[in-house]
Design a protein around this nucleic acid. Sequence first.
RNA 1: GCCGGGGUGGGGUAGUUGGUUAUCCUACGGGACUGUGGAUCCCGCGACUCGGGUUCGAAUCUCGGCCCCGGCCCCA
Length: 430
Amino acid sequence: MDIQRPRGTRDFLFHEMSQRKQVENTLRRIFETYGYQEIKTPLFEDLALFTMKSGEGIMEQIYHFQDKGGRDLALRPELTAPVARLYINELQKKSKPIKMYYFGSCFRYERPQAGRWRQFWQLGCELIGGRSPESEAEIIALSAHCLEELGLEDFEIHIGNLGIIRGILNEAGVSRGEQDQIMATIDKGDVKELKDILETFRVDQNLKDVLITLVGMKGHREVIDKVSRIIDGNESALKALKELEELLGILEAFGFSNYIVNLGIARGLDYYSGTVSEIYVHGLGAQKQISGGGTYNLIELFGGETVESTGFAFGFDRLMEALKKQGITMPQSRTVDVFVAPISQEVKLQAFEIAQDLRKNGIKTDVDLVGRKLKRILSHADSLGARYVLLVGERDLKEGKITLKDMELGEQILVEIDQVTAHLIKLCPQ
RNA sequence: GCCGGGGUGGGGUAGUUGGUUAUCCUACGGGACUGUGGAUCCCGCGACUCGGGUUCGAAUCUCGGCCCCGGCCCCA
């Protein structure tokens, strides 16, 4: 029987896991620096949680099943909806704003390719009950802070506001359904397809030109002025633009000004309302987006009281890919600092006692458990990368001593048996 | 769901105009060496992705499945 890993899943071995854990810990630390608290939601949820907001079409990509009680359940394909659900179930009456973060795996039934797996991890946060654009600015600053801390370079943070284009479309009387299709097309970034669909919906030439110009708007602060001339007279669009401008100002106060204003960012889903942001790292193939975020009204959609909420999430696997691509590695700690080697089976109990004493003092220690010859033990200790080996042998024990060997320098000294732990505590970084 | 490229011991490979016991390196287990690693030598372990077809004979040709890599679609 040859059982294979399910398609689109991965096993993580020691080195990779260590790297992932360190990146995870770094991000957690920063999230907590901003006052976010961790939550954990179930791996599976009621299927309806994911279908009610985005329609049945989403079913194609969801791992769903019926349990033995006939309930329709789904492995979560993302974490924003579960967090919104958690908020409604547990936290509606808590003092606002509420800052939550999560780290967990999600599942989508899709064709695996570079940067896309069927089980993947998201690390993100949600800020509920804050205010635009202050909350959004803080979240974007937080995400930039994370990437800077990790040492990632050449990332681009794109920021847009869906209210601008929505405002234009509303005033032109384009129906909600058509708007959603237009937004979905903008999201794809295909200008030709956008033209085609605008043609199909018979929007007038002037409006068409305005839209095409707007989605192509990309740049720094100067974009604001250009856009304001284009949408002059449209109150709701101008209001959204004003909000975007304010956001940029706040973001700069938070210490991040290397953003790219990009009105071509959209969302296929209609519960995203105002600010949206995405982070790209080039050189990752088709999946260059490592993060996505924005302001949404999911909570209302689920029947909660109206409350502003915004969030973002890193595609953790893609972030790891980006770091790897740039040659950024986290410091690798030793598997063990000390290896205790009984020279003969007669002294193995003493070896175990010594090992345990070191461990109780916080020193990463391994000890031979398989009764190998000294030569093999040293070889094994070497392959583990142990810095020190304690050779426990009858000859030394008779004098109350143990040999301490430095595997890197190749030197060794005799240490009084009751001094060994104290000696190694000094040598090994805790 | 679609298109292209792949799949030989744990890792990396040779072999693919069909033909003896599938090559080499490395890793791993043991020994040479009963108190000294990263050196050498010896021994051992271990593979043709799966199934059907063609054939006297298939790792090799052919069809299909599975899986991997890249792209399309999609991307909450």
